[in-house]
Design a protein around this nucleic acid. Sequence first.
DNA 1: CGCTAACTTGTGATCGGTAACAACTGGGGT
DNA 2: ACCCCAGTTGTTACCGATCACAAGTTAGCG
Lengths: 358, 358
Amino acid sequence: MAAKRPAADDGQAARTDGAVAPQPRGSVMRDVARLAGVSHQTVSRVLNEHPNVRQETRRRVLEAMQALNYRRNLAARTLVTRRSGTLGVVGLETTLFGPASMLYGIEDAARTAGYFVTVASVRTLERRSVLEAVDRLCQQSVEGIVAIAPKPAVTNALVQVPSGLASVGVGGGADDDAVPTVRIDNAAGARLATQHLLDLGHSTVHHVAGPPDWPEARERVEGWRGTLYAAGAPVPPVEPGSWSAQSGYEQGQALARDPAVTAVFCGNDQIALGLLRALHEAGRRVPHEVSVVGFDDMPDSGYFLPPLTTIHQDFAELGRRSLTVLLDQIQHPGDRPADHVLLSPELVVRASTAPPRA
Amino acid sequence: MAAKRPAADDGQAARTDGAVAPQPRGSVMRDVARLAGVSHQTVSRVLNEHPNVRQETRRRVLEAMQALNYRRNLAARTLVTRRSGTLGVVGLETTLFGPASMLYGIEDAARTAGYFVTVASVRTLERRSVLEAVDRLCQQSVEGIVAIAPKPAVTNALVQVPSGLASVGVGGGADDDAVPTVRIDNAAGARLATQHLLDLGHSTVHHVAGPPDWPEARERVEGWRGTLYAAGAPVPPVEPGSWSAQSGYEQGQALARDPAVTAVFCGNDQIALGLLRALHEAGRRVPHEVSVVGFDDMPDSGYFLPPLTTIHQDFAELGRRSLTVLLDQIQHPGDRPADHVLLSPELVVRASTAPPRA
DNA sequence: CGCTAACTTGTGATCGGTAACAACTGGGGT
DNA sequence: ACCCCAGTTGTTACCGATCACAAGTTAGCG
């Protein structure tokens, strides 16, 4: 028997002193098979829960695996099955609350479904770096790609993905029909916020927007503007900004000087935080003189001064849903049109909004 | 030539209609070799930048790779080299600012070093779930594991890692010498904060701590307490809490009622946020009546009301340094004692601290 | 008792790379 | 002219799993 693999043992010994030490080798299927007194194929059957294995044999194999602390080699399995059991995530290198939460939602759902997750983060959302990230994931032979995709460059890059590879964009805007997406209804969220302020009696609502090149920000602007139109309220101008508290603070300083401003809807909670500070410094009290609404419902926004009324979106759920879509694609690789899942955000009323002073 | 691989084309056709479609196969090394008119081994040499390949040959191979859009199959490479080029991260499923930042720091450094990153997140820090996560990563045959390790259960689980596998804990406490760690000097940070307040003239400093079962929280308590001792200041009692704004708010309500409280050091910035709200609601002005210091320097804390004086720690750097340690272990697998890297945090003075009122 | 069907198990090929070794080139030194 | 060595390329075995197929075993049934 040993004669069949002449180089096995000797070769192993002869290989010492390599430049970079290879991983120490654990036991492999052959070892388990030998210990259990069966063929390697039977071990494989037990592992893959093939029905036609005698109970007694299965027990022996499982015992041998236990005894040898056997772990199946995924590389070998991947090589032959062409299925890696791995999904890729293209993530933006940011600590914005949303993206981070989505990542964990995705990982959680992937684990439940029996998949591994590898991350390729990009520092910028340029087309080139996204393509590079996708390429890295393809090398890993991932079975599908989730792109945390706030900007079109990302989903566009997905279109270039080698044909047949499943993909989904999560949490961005809706600008490309070719790639399935899962996102929240930003316009609806903006409408909720704006209408809430109008309903309180404000004659109009100002808006401090996120970066204009982010579709999410644009959709929120449109929802806000549409609501004002529908109500016949004047539409104040919008200045370009970023997602940061600093941006909210800077624009807030200007708004605070304008006594006509009684209600402000912010592109996200961080902007709202900056705005609150600017209003406070200018001596304008919230919500008595100015009402403020945010977007995202970060864990902290209930503890702002005052606690922030905002639009809640469930990032973890977004991550989970994106995985549902992705797995569906993997299992039924029909080329029917990409689906677009749209989740509804909710208004959370806290203490930063009130009717305008008479 | 074709006779050598009789099943290649026919087998492919016969395999249609499998239950789950395997990945569509791209071109492989053999295809590139054929197109370039060389052997597959030469292609391998070009790929691995082996020096002894004629310039002209290399050019032809590269062209062929380009033309066929060739991508090397990492599973095959891993199988034979026993090196996966992948590192594993055990991450806590949380959106705390710190862990999320570290993840990106790690991924960034890993990419630079030519490694992939796969994530295994855990929902709780129990020993069992951490072990399970480590096991998942081992299956992936990662070459090293970074554990975002705020609690000892995590680093302890690392000790159980199959011998020879490199590992490092990042960002937790220092309670186990067996596993290398990279973390910031929490006690030193706490001393900075406390001393800052004492230097302003406060007769003592109160503390709202993080969860007592987190070493990080405990180290901060010790740093604070030690500084008070050294200054001969009375040491107020510490209540158990969590890292959340809610915890800060609840404990803040009690502190706000006590007129003897003029300076508070918080376990992190979120706690400080809650505390600020409690003080505000109780009508105690910050910093004029009460000074507050946080810990972490989240991006938003400069926009709290008032802007928060806090201890800055560089999470991304923490992630990068952990990778340095890990790669060092991989390249020099000597069994010398584990190193422990300790980064120094910095005091950032903003507007939430001032001398006590006369 | 023989025969087929279902269950169980083993054998050999294969996935796509890399490692080891052999074979073939073309100078440079004596 | 000869040898040797370095540079270049090809051949073959191998990593550790799965798959297809064959072979042996048991059971059911006329």
